[in-house]
């Protein structure tokens, strides 16, 4: 079997734009869930607004890409405020339900036929991201490749992922700087006990709102990267499972840590792509019984997602704190 091809596919997925997008989604979610304890199940909504804000600004209104990016991020802030104002005072479960529903409602509205004139509706929207690729310093001829062996990218891809990972690093640095401060201590106290935090004079609502906005904008950046990478946006790309993939990455890597969500996103895509490629190669092998080959054929993607889910279950059983989390903290939950 061609393991070098399997590995190449997996490694490209692990460091490619999809992993960047997932990492940004997970880093934002970490601010919500990991540090503040906000059970946000609508993280995909922020990605969606980031992506559509950018795409629609350029495609429909003819604005420049940079204005589009700004619009995408401003819409993310607006969504955080809209999520937060009515629900942050309610119980966590309420918040979870509202966020998952609201994100899905936005997706359905944007993808409806009535919205064709504005967002492209179900037809998706596309634009020319040349303003971004014009800055590409990597030579991008038809034969230019960057990497080793089967693990290689084109010049355009290189440019997207370079900017993407630098963005992930910068954002994580900012998160690190603000969370290790007394401000971050208040966030963690809210996660542990809201009333205790209130009793010491902290305006819990205000802190939660700040966390929601920050994590939401980071998710929105993921959406912007997605829009640039695909030169557009499609409503089907923003189904609720995107949020759950972000949770998977976060829990794999370790919530409430700084590198956890990044590591988790890389691992998520590596595993997912490795399994899928492996199954594809497998179903092409001649020695497989035809029933097995037929079963596998076309189902590789689904099975690989299921396997990633299984690995998460195993992780929760054997290393519930994630790869980088702290075991002692986890054990406190049992007390």
């Amino acid at each position: 079997m061609a393991f070098d091809i399997i590995f190449g596919n997996a490694a490209r997925a692990a460091f490619g734009p999809e992993a960047v997008i997932l990492a940004l989604a997970a880093v934002g979610l970490n601010v919500h869930f990991g540090f503040t304890g906000l059970l946000n199940f609508g993280q995909v909504g922020f990605l969606l607004l980031g992506a559509y804000g950018t795409s629609v600004s350029v495609a429909t209104f003819g604005w420049s890409l940079w204005v589009g990016i700004l619009v995408g991020l401003v819409l993310s802030v607006a969504l955080a405020v809209a999520f937060g104002l009515p629900t942050l005072r309610l119980h966590v479960v309420m918040f979870a339900i509202v966020t998952i529903a609201a994100a899905e409602i936005i997706r359905i509205l944007i993808g409806s036929t009535d919205a064709i004139g504005l967002t492209g509706g179900p037809l998706s929207v596309s634009f020319d991201a040349e303003a971004f690729y014009d800055l590409n310093p990597y030579p991008d001829g038809p034969h230019d490749r960057y990497g080793v062996g089967t693990f290689e990218f084109t010049g355009q891809q290189m440019w997207v992922i370079t900017v993407g990972w630098v963005l992930v690093a910068l954002v994580s640095l900012v998160v690190f700087l603000i969370v290790r401060s007394p401000w971050g201590r208040v966030l963690k106290s809210i996660r542990e006990d809201e009333d205790a935090t209130r009793s010491l004079g902290k305006n819990v609502f205000s802190y939660k709102m700040q966390a929601l906005i920050i994590g939401g904008v980071i998710g929105g950046m993921g959406g912007v990267v997605d829009a640039i990478k695909t030169s557009g946006a499609d409503p089907n790309g923003f189904r609720p499972q995107v949020t759950f993939f972000a949770y998977t990455a976060l829990l794999l890597g370790g919530a409430a840590t700084y590198v956890g969500p990044i590591l988790g996103a890389i691992l998520f895509w590596f595993l997912r792509e490795w399994i899928e490629s492996f199954l594809r190669q497998l179903s092409a092998e001649a020695w497989l019984p035809s029933t097995v080959a037929d079963f596998l054929d076309g189902a590789e993607g689904v099975i690989s997602v299921a396997m990633v889910g299984l690995s998460l279950v195993l992780l929760m059983l054997f290393r519930p704190q994630g790869i980088t989390g702290s075991r002692t903290e986890m054990q406190l939950d049992a007390r």
Binding site: S181, P182, W183, R185, V186, K188, S189, R191, E192, D193, D195, A196, T197, S199, L200, G201, K202, A256, E329, L332, R335
Partner: peptide, 22 residues
């Protein structure tokens, strides 16, 4: 209502009023 996953010291520090870093 102890803040279980914060250190004992951080629990007390949270009480400090007027910390600019908040």
């Amino acid at each position: 209502k102890s803040l279980a996953k914060l250190s004992v010291l951080d629990n007390v520090l949270l009480g400090a009023p007027g910390q600019v870093g908040e």
